[in-house]
């Protein structure tokens, strides 16, 4: 494992910890899209079916279990916790996420490494992860004001994707057998979706001002 991949995993972990901290400390999930969180839970559940079939390392197994457990915990809190669920911006979280599910599934049926149950679901999880942030970005844009922890959450999530691209560039030169086109192309699309957010994030950081997205 190279440094970019490791830092990518760590920023991913940090983003989830920030989200858990926000929900735990403020008992609020305002600004957070339940649709995006549900899509992420589904991404992890479909991708990590290999927990039952392949053992890669203790690190790998532990991280997979952490991602599954934390995503399910977040969804549970947003749906069921008596205080947290009241702060959910349901009227702003209106992205038609079923289209993302359908499109990802159809694409996975067409484009996969092998036509097998686990492989098609793996491709599905990759495609779905690439677009799962869209309901979240739309919610932020609609609410305009982004609270500090929510802004940091999305920033670290974007940083994780950017670091994975550096990881692939590194692997491409070091390990010529590494050719995961589905993951790499989807990863590029996914990272591009953050470009607009990053732009406004850095402007607010430079001006030392609160993060605001244009309507």
């Amino acid at each position: 494992m190279n440094i970019f991949r490791f830092l990518g995993d760590m920023t991913h972990l940090i983003s989830i910890l920030i989200l858990l901290l926000k929900i735990y400390a403020t008992k609020s999930c305002s600004g957070i899209s339940l649709k995006t969180q549900e899509l992420y839970a589904l991404v992890f559940l479909t991708r990590y079916l290999d927990l039952f079939t392949d053992f890669i390392s203790v690190y790998n197994t532990v991280m997979k279990l952490v991602f599954i457990a934390s995503s399910l915990a977040i969804v549970w809190c947003m749906r069921n916790h008596p205080l947290v669920r009241r702060s959910y911006d349901k009227q702003l979280d209106t992205f038609r996420h079923y289209f993302l599910l359908l499109a990802s599934f159809l694409l996975a049926l067409l484009l996969h490494e092998k036509f097998a149950f686990q492989e098609v679901l793996w491709a599905f999880s990759i495609y779905l992860e690439a677009v799962a942030i869209l309901p979240q970005l739309v919610l932020l844009q609609r609410s305009g004001n982004v609270d500090n922890l929510t802004g940091q959450y999305v920033f670290f999530l974007g940083a994780y994707r950017a670091l994975y691209i550096f990881n692939w560039i590194y692997r491409y030169f070091i390990d010529p057998h590494f050719t995961r086109w589905i993951a790499c192309v989807s990863g590029l699309v996914q990272t591009a979706l953050y470009a607009d957010f990053f732009y406004y994030y850095f402007i607010s950081w430079k001006n030392n001002a609160k993060l605001q997205l244009p309507a």
Partner: peptide, 10 residues
Amino acid sequence: AKEDVPKDEL
């Protein structure tokens, strides 16, 4: 075959 390499990324 390359597709049999386990998927080591998260």
